[in-house]
Amino acid sequence: MTTVFYIAGAVAIAATIMMLTRLNAVHALLYLIVSLLAAAVIFYDLGAPFVAALEVIIYAGAIMVLFVFVVMLLNLGEQASRAERGLLTPSIWIGPSVLAAVLLAELIWILMRGSVPPAEAAGAGPAEVGMALFGRYLIGVELASMLLLAGLVGAYHLGWRRVPKAKVIHASRS
């Protein structure tokens, strides 16, 4: 069990690093999908099959696909890739890397400090999750649905483009 965890973890980290350093957006997205799949494996390993499935379906299957659609719409092309290279100079990534490294060191230090009593692997099945979701966390579910509604309306409004009058008249005449 632990070996699966370690391998999947290594894959996730490697895929993420690759994603960060790609110049082409589509390549980076593919690496990100790989990272998310590795995370799904970890979830399944930890005894949370429901969430593993959701990770694949929604995160990798919907959200990332949305990303892909948008990148396609943007139609960035080769020129953008070359411009990206210019933007990844050492002077740009040294500072943030140091900052992130410091944060990582702090987090690991905190995590290593305490002692965690060992426990057996045991997850919670979908039934349990469902009971908790619609029992204790019902309000959260309602709020999440309102959030999704807001996102829906917002995305619709932002994406709506006014058609220029000339085109409309032209279309009706012809």
């Binding site: 500072g95 943030p96 900052l99 944060l103 702090e106 987090l107």
Partner: peptide, 20 residues
Amino acid sequence: LRWHAAWIAGGAVFVVAIVM
């Protein structure tokens, strides 16, 4: 954007250091 995000990250580092 990056400037402000960097400051937020810096703040997080600082707070975690205090906790540490």
